[in-house]
Design a protein around this nucleic acid. Structure first.
Lengths: 217, 217
DNA sequence: CCGATCAGATACTCACACTATCTGATACTG
DNA sequence: CAGTATCAGATAGTGTGAGTATCTGATCGG
C-alpha cells in the first residue's frame, strides 16, 4: 500500500508516520522508484504497536525504540524482559534508595530468585522510601499483600508467555505484557477499590443512603 | 525557617519552590515584612509530598494540584478516591473504547460493585482493546488472574485506609496509596517475573541448582 | 552601615512529540 | 500526453510542561 493508505488504516497522520521513520522506530517502504515506496501489513502492525505502547503504555519514543530493537534482535527472553522492564519506568539511580528500603523489599521477596540489579527491586525500594518520606506509617501488611498480588500476576505473565510458540511472538508478548500489564492492573485495582469500599462503607446493610442500587452486574 | 533552609532541607532548588508557589500547589510563608516570609514544617512536608507524587508517582503538577485540593478540602473519602484515581492516568474518552472491551472488563469484574463511570473500568477496557489491536491472542486466563490480583491489592488498600484515624490522614493515605500503589506493584511484579521465569526455565544465574518448582506466596 | 539574602515578577530554556512547509519527481486521469 | 494529485525526503516550526535565571528593590545580620 502507499503512504496515504497506511495513514488512514492506522489512523495516524502522514507527518507522524514520517516522524517515526526519522526516529528509526519504523522501517521505510520498499522503493519502487527514487521517490516512491510501498508499505506492507508489517508496517501497519508496527504502527499499531508503537501507538499502543506510547498512547496506552505511556512509553516515550526512545523507550519504544529500545523495546522494538529487543523484539527484532535475536535476544534471549531474559534480555528482552530486562529491556522491557527498564522501559516501563525511568532507570533508578541505586544511590537514591536507602539501604533500609532495599532490605525491606528483599524481605518482602524473601525466597524469590531476584538479582540485585533487577530494576523492579529498585523501583519498589524507591516507593518504600517515598512512603516513609511522606510520613506514612510503616505499612507492613500492605507491602506484603502487594507482593503476594505481584506474584500472582507474574505467574499469569509467564503462563501467558509459555503459550506463545515462536520467538518473535514471545518477544512481543514479553514487551506488550510488561508494558500494558501495569496499566491493566492499575485499572482493575481502581475498579476493585470502588467495589471493596462500597462493600465496606455504603452497602445497604442498614440506614446508610445507598448510591447506585442497579450495579450488581 | 527561611527559604534557604526550606530549599536545603527539602533538597529542592529555591526556584523550583517558587515555581510550586506560583502554581498554587504550595502556600506562601508567613510574612514578617513586605519581602520577608517564614516557612514551617508543614511547608517542608508539602514539598516532600509534591516531589514524591511527581518524581516517583509520575504525576503532573496539574494532577498534584487537584489531588492536594482533595486532601485539603473536607471531601468524602469516596470523592477523594475518585480524584486520586483520575489523577493516576489521563481521563479516557469513553468513545475510544469498544463495547466489546467494556463487556469483557465487566465480565472480569462480575459481582463487583463498580459504577459505569469508574475511570479504572475504562482504563482496563482500553488496555483490552490495545491487546487486540496489537494482535495478541485473547488472553482469557491472563485477564482473569489480573482481576484476582487487583482485588487482593484493593482489599489491602482499604484495610490500610481503615487503620488511619483522622480524616486528613485518611485523605493523604488515599492519594499516596493510589498513586504509589501502582508503582509498588509494578516494581514487585517485575521482581516476581524474574523469580518465576528463573523457576520455570531454571536459569543458573548463580550456578545454584534450581529450587523446588512450587512457589510460595 | 554594608554586603548577603530575600520576595515577587518576568523572562528564558530545554526536551519531547509532533506538525507544517518545501522541493523535485512520479503516478493517475481524461 | 498534458495536467493535476500524490509522493519521499529534508528542514523548519509549534505547543506544552517543568522548571531556571535574572532583575528589582527591600530587609537582615554582623
Amino acid at each position: 500500500m502507499r503512504m496515504a493508505e497506511l495513514s488512514t488504516r492506522s489512523g495516524t497522520p502522514v507527518a507522524t508516520i514520517k516522524y517515526y521513520q526519522r526516529e528509526n522506530i519504523l522501517a521505510g517502504g520498499a522503493h519502487s522508484g527514487p521517490n516512491q515506496a510501498l508499505y506492507s501489513e508489517t508496517h501497519l502492525d508496527r504502527i499499531r504497536l508503537i501507538r499502543g505502547l506510547t498512547e496506552v503504555g505511556g512509553l516515550s519514543v526512545a523507550a519504544v525504540r529500545r523495546v522494538l530493537e529487543a523484539i527484532d534482535s535475536e535476544r534471549s527472553l531474559q534480555e528482552t524482559f530486562e529491556i522491557a522492564q527498564q522501559s516501563v519506568s525511568a532507570t533508578i539511580d541505586p544511590s537514591t534508595v536507602s539501604a533500609e528500603a532495599l532490605a525491606r523489599v528483599d524481605a518482602l521477596t524473601a525466597g524469590w530468585h531476584v538479582s540485585a540489579a533487577n530494576p523492579g527491586r529498585l523501583a519498589a525500594a524507591r516507593v518504600v522510601d517515598t512512603f516513609a518520606e511522606v510520613g506514612q506509617v510503616d505499612a507492613r501488611g500492605w507491602f506484603d499483600r502487594y507482593a503476594a498480588a505481584a506474584l500472582l500476576a507474574a505467574e499469569a505473565d509467564i503462563d501467558e508467555l509459555d503459550a506463545r510458540v515462536d520467538r518473535a511472538a514471545k518477544g512481543e508478548t514479553v514487551v506488550v505484557g510488561t508494558v500494558l500489564g501495569d496499566k491493566l492492573f492499575s485499572g482493575l485495582r481502581r475498579a476493585a477499590q470502588e467495589h471493596i469500599s462500597a462493600l465496606r462503607y455504603s452497602v445497604p446493610l442498614d440506614g446508610a443512603p445507598e448510591p447506585a442500587p442497579d450495579q450488581t452486574s
